[in-house]
Each structure stands twice: as structure tokens, then as C-alpha cells.
Design a protein around this nucleic acid. Sequence first.
RNA 1: CGGGGCGUGGCUCAGCUUGGUAGAGCGCCUGGUUCGGGACCAGGAGGUCGGAGGUUCGAAUCCUCUCGCCCCGACCA
Length: 488
Amino acid sequence: MSDQKSKNITPRAKDFAAWYQDVVLAGDMAEPAEIVKGCMVIKPNGYAVWEHLQRDLDARFKATGHQNAYFPLLIPESFLKKEAEHVEGFSPELAVVTVAGGKKLEEPYVIRPTSETIIGHFFSRWIQSWRDLPILLNQWANVMRWEMRTRMFLRTTEFLWQEGHTAHATEQEAYEETVRMLHIYGDVAEETMAMPVIRGVKTRAEKFAGAQRSFCIEAMMQNGLALQAGTSHELGQNFGRAFDVQFQSRNGTLEYVWQTSWGVSTRLIGGLIMTHSDDRGLVLPPKLAPTKAVIVPICRKDDERAMVMEKVDAIAGQLRALGLNIHVDAREELSPGAKFFHWEQRGVPVTIELGPRDVASGTAVLKRRDTGSKTPVPIGGIAAAVTAALDAMQAEMLERARVRLRENTVTANSFEEVTAILKDATAEKGGGKFVMTHLKDDPTVDAKVKELKASVRCIPLIDEYDGPGKCILTGDTVDRRVVVAKAY
RNA sequence: CGGGGCGUGGCUCAGCUUGGUAGAGCGCCUGGUUCGGGACCAGGAGGUCGGAGGUUCGAAUCCUCUCGCCCCGACCA
């Protein structure tokens, strides 16, 4: 394997943030919208990954009984104000429409930052009886949050996501829904994206504005920083009360519904990139790669071309028969080397190289994007070799990311230790860790952690450590270690 | 909102200090030779120098104002 570096990509070790941006651009995933502050254009390569994620998630939503629906982009400003915590949480980041049709609006609309409020309004119209429950909805939508600082995919003013919204008759049922969806997110992250996550609960200080309790999946990027990759909220009866969503129960009493909401966004793509990509560009796990393999023919003269292309077409045919999306790069104006770089930067999992020497020996050279390993394989066995390589790559990418997560997770038993561990970690230079320590779920404790420019990422659902211990700040007994880290 | 940086062909930038015919590399177009990890030669197209005002015989360059973008921090999927 060659050790040539891509000249348009800053090495990770030099500046992680610059590397990330370079990879997004070199992979032709997206670019800053430039004329629209904080927004991005998701280019076909990036959008194709989003479509794969959508398809996967959507199938899992449907399989658990959810239906898609669509609610308006614009929400009456007064709706946002109906839930006290919700308005407090979101008002700083709202974009507001005050003029429409050339006239000043009597009541401004906000561009949705999320849809709990407007959906609450309609739930109240749709729900009368326990027989109307549960309502299990999802919407694929764009939302807008006026952020002070944006980064492509990770945080943009406008982003794409799905938001699930459900209403239930009992708290228990709503709780089960919340956890069920959290696990769907965790499964997609791990199975499809090969991105290991920690499933956990947010502290009270970190939970969604208006929720009773928020669950999350937290991933670790290659610089050791945490990324909240998905959230699932128990809304309790907060929005039910705010929007008067009541139903008559079996025994005739009038009760507020128990709601949930849950979402993942195009941020997942940022997480995907920062989990797997390298100094040569994008690395996509096979299950998400829009193009599974590229075939690069190598030939000099026309007679060679005919001979090589015949084999190339045969191979492409074999692979396509398996349902794999295969691209043949037959451009005559580019050298093979240029093509290798081109597809490498775009993260295509497998490259198949085929030239006159291969034709003579009845083989093709198969190269894996993640390891860079090159293996000659008999043309007859190419289908099996490619599927094996794709499967192995998917599994090994997850395993490598798991090892990295494990190796960068440490325990600490005092605030001084936590401080020392996180002191030099930055997004640019790396060095981030997940620090497992005992902390009480108390906003004053979160505030103290914030002083380290870190946060309590979550209280893991599964305790893989030593159980209860004393909070390193308050001395209170808490039942397990929590994850403290610097985050995006 | 604070700190830093930047606006000059499609992209990356030089030129500005010391005003005087707008440049380079990459990319693009044409033709030819090439092709096992970013090919080469020849010819060619392409720019109201972010915008407005001012100084001057003359402004990319000096002055004033302004707009925008990126990066770093505080807020966040």
C-alpha cells in the first residue's frame, strides 16, 4: 500500500477540525451555503448517505407501528410559549417570520426548531378517548435553530431530521416507547453506521427543554470528543397540559396523555465521518455507502481496452446481480492513479483494479478502503470476494471504533482527576476522553463540570463499572458512574 | 456577542508596505501522446480585484464607511 497523502486534506493529527472540514469537502459531501449564514448545501454524495439512513430508520419506525405525517414549517409564536421550559430553552435560537404577503403579521410565526407544540395542538383535536391512543407518528422534516456557531453536518442553522411524536394512555407505555426508540437509534448507529454508542439518560440540566427525562446515545469521535447522536424524550404530561391533550379513560376519568418525542438528524453523518474517516478522506461503512465498489480498468491501447473492458463488464454484471451498486470508471481522460484518489476520497468501500496483466492471469485486484489492503482474486470468485470484503469491513470498522472507545474511556475518583484528564483535550488537538466518575444528577453539579468546558454526557443505562459510589462533588451516594467528556 | 483571519479568473493564493498595462498554480476548453497510485506537450477561454464613498492626472494598492464568509470561545440535534 502506498503511503501517499492527499494533498487537499489536513492530517488529523495536525488539526482535527480542519481535517474534518477537508474530508467533507474532498468527499464531496457538502459545502457551506456561503450566501446563507450557517447553512450548508448537502451534495449528492452526502445526501445519498442520508437517504440510506432514512430508509433504514424509516423501516424500523414502520416495523414498530409508526406512521409518517407532516406538520407545518411555521408555528404560531404563542405556541412556543405555552410550555415554560420549552420556550426558555428555544427562544434564543428562533427565526421568526413577522412579515408575509407584504403585510406585517398580527401574530408572528416561528420557523420550527422542533414540532412538539404544533403537534400538541393537533393531538388535542384528535384525541378524545383512550381508544384514540396510542398515536405513533413520525415526520421527516427540516428545522431551524439559530446557532451562534455552525459546522457542516454537526451543527447548521437549518438541518434535516426526523422527529417522532407519540401519545399514550399511561406513563409506563410512554416510557417503553421512549426506550424502544432509543434502542432503535443505538442499533442503527452500531449495525448500520458501525458507530458504537453509549445509551444513557441525560442529567436534569442537560435534558430537552420541556421533557421530563431525556435518553440519548453518545458516540466518541476520533479526537475523543463526545457527540450526542440521538435523543429520545419522555415528555410526561407537560405538553399534554400545555395544549390540553386530554382523553377519557376506560373508567371515565379525564386524563392528560403521556407523550414522547425522539429524533436523529443529519448530524449522524458528521458522526459517521469523525468516527471512521482517515487522512486520505472519507471512509464509509459498506452498509451506508451509496456505491459499494468502483471498478477501474487499466489499459493503454485500444485492443487492450476492448479486452479489459470485456472483463470489467463481466465483473460488474456479476456484482450487480447481487444487488450491489457498482460504478465502472471508464473515463479515458484520467489516469488510473487519479481515479484511485478520486474514489478513495469519496469513501467507496472497495476498489477493483483490472488491467492487461490481470486479464492474462484471470484475476482482478481488490482493494479495501479501510485497511488499504490489496488482494488479487480470481475473476470467477469476484462476487464472493467482494461480499466477503464488504462484510468484513463493516464488522471490523465497528470493532476498531469499539476498541478506540474502550481505550479512551477512563475512570476517575476525584474532581481533580477529572480536571487533569480533560485539561488538554480540544477539538483541534484531540486528547478527549470519556471519564467515568460518580456525580449526582444535580444542576449545580453540572454547572461545576461546565467549568471544565466539559459536560455530563449521560448516565449509562447499563453500568459496566463498579456500581454505587459517592459523588465526587457532593459526597452523596449515587448508583453508578456517569460519562463526563468534552463534546461537540 | 467577544477574539482571530479572509474577501483578487471556477478553486487556492501572490501582488498592496513604496499608487502607474491584473499575475501564478490547480481546474476548464481544443488537439496529440499517455495510462498498474494525483501523466505530458502545444494552443486557448476566463477577472467591474466583496460593495459604497473619498484622496489622486491615475487606486486591487492610500483613507472612511459598509456587507459577507471562515476559524476559535460562550449556547446547542
